[in-house]
Nucleic acid binder design. Structure first.
Length: 393
DNA sequence: TCTGGGGTCCTAGGACCC
DNA sequence: TCTGGGGTCCTAGGACCC
């Protein structure tokens, strides 16, 4: 007997806020808003369902959230703690399937095909999974069950919070109709506007068009994506093929600045963070990318590819700094700078130079510092002298 | 409303080579 | 003298997601 494919999508409800409510019983039942502090620049990272009743949602400017919910509990992001809880949850999930793909800190996609003998029918398995996550990690969650990952993802969203929804084999199009065009995963504001401009406002109408016409109206990738999505076919989300990726860090200044020293110092700090992450994952890259944003929020990026892999934070910094110097209009204050690597591959491809460059020598020192701080993360922080003079924050 | 930070993927155009 | 077509790599910007 061939197994029918079964996928679960697990989504932790209002995750950051739930962890705060779990750790501080006094916050339970209250509108908890995790993110920037009111009065400063920033947005809501997550908020409890109690806060949502005030119209607060994630990604909302914190100032607006405060206007809507002045009585809320405003908390800073405690990422290390959320990572800790997330790991616990992922570990529990791995007891249910050998193929668990973490999508983000609070989401995972599980291939549950062929697990019926172990856990029972999908619904029953999902109930067990929810119970175990709640008991083991304390986190409330929603689970979607479907014949593919794409449908399972939307099913997990369908009955949030504390939801459990199954999309049955024969009722796929019915489910997509219920979701509606605007809430299809991967279809955002711009694509929706474009669809409305050609009078496509329902899933049914999009379904009547051929793949060819959708591709000619909407572009090749979007056209094919839409054609599949309205039929509930997985448009290829969460593929597991190893590709190059990127690592970056960016900072929004407390106040816009045109002070080159502050900008450069900030870039240096970010460069060390990025380089340490590259060391940590054992990656390598030849491409340095920077990003900058002016007061009017206009945002630019540029990158350059060297003929060798970058071996130290110093080299990353100097390459990025040169790019920024070349592009930035110094009469316009900056709101944000960022730096990172693009096209990161696994290390080991490029052979060691016989005569190390100055950058490579510095890179070895940085790597030693990195290994030291990893060995003893609670000890005195090892910080390069050049970083001690930090920009005001 | 005055808008974080970390990503992925796609597109279009240019450089360069055969 | 005015000129093809395909392929690859690179870059900037945009859409989207959490």
């Amino acid at each position: 007997m061939t197994d029918t494919p079964v996928f679960f999508h697990v989504d932790l409800d209002a995750f950051f806020a739930s962890v705060e409510q779990m750790d501080n019983p006094g916050y339970r039942g209250k509108p908890v808003i995790v993110g920037a502090s009111p009065g400063k620049r920033g947005v809501v990272s997550a908020c409890s369902y109690e806060a949502r009743r005030f119209g607060v949602h994630s990604a909302m400017p914190i100032s607006e959230a405060f206007r809507r919910c002045p009585g809320g509990v405003y908390l800073p992001v405690r990422m290390e703690r959320y990572v800790e809880v997330s790991r616990k949850v992922m570990k529990i999930l791995s007891q249910f399937s050998p193929d668990v793909r973490p999508i983000s800190i609070d989401e995972a996609s599980l291939d549950m095909s062929g697990t019926r003998r172990l856990f029972g029918p999908p619904r029953e398995a999902a109930e067990k999974l929810k119970d175990r996550v709640r008991a083991g990690a304390g986190a409330p969650l929603s689970v979607g069950i479907a014949p593919n990952r794409f449908l399972a993802k939307m099913a997990s969203d369908f009955k949030k919070p504390d939801g459990l929804y199954e999309v049955e084999e024969g009722r796929v199009e019915e489910f997509i109709d219920a979701i509606g065009l605007a809430k299809l995963w991967g279809l955002g504001k711009k694509t929706m506007e474009r669809l409305l401009s050609i009078h496509l406002d329902t899933v049914e109408k999009v379904r009547q068009l051929s793949e060819e016409s959708l591709r000619s109206f909407m572009g090749e990738a979007t056209g094919t994506y839409l054609y599949n999505a309205v039929r509930g076919r997985d448009p290829g989300m969460y593929s597991d093929t190893a590709k190059s990726h990127s690592i970056s860090h960016e900072t929004t200044f407390p106040e816009d600045t045109a002070d080159w020293d502050i900008i450069a110092l900030c870039l240096l700090d970010l460069s060390h963070q990025v380089m340490f992450r590259l060391f940590d994952e054992g990656g390598a890259s030849r491409t340095v990318a920077i990003k900058y944003r002016y007061s009017d929020f206009s945002t630019f990026s540029c990158q350059t590819t060297l003929n060798h892999c970058i071996s130290s934070a110093e080299e990353l910094y100097e390459t990025g700094l040169a790019l920024l110097k070349e592009k930035w209009n110094p009469r316009l204050p900056l709101r944000l700078v960022g730096i990172g690597f693009d096209k990161v591959q696994a290390e080991g491809g490029g052979q060691q130079e016989l005569f190390p460059t100055e950058y490579e020598r510095r890179g070895r020192v940085e790597k030693a510092v990195f290994n030291l701080s990893r060995k003893d993360p609670d000890g005195a922080p090892v910080i390069k002298a050049s970083l001690l003079k930090r920009p005001p924050s």
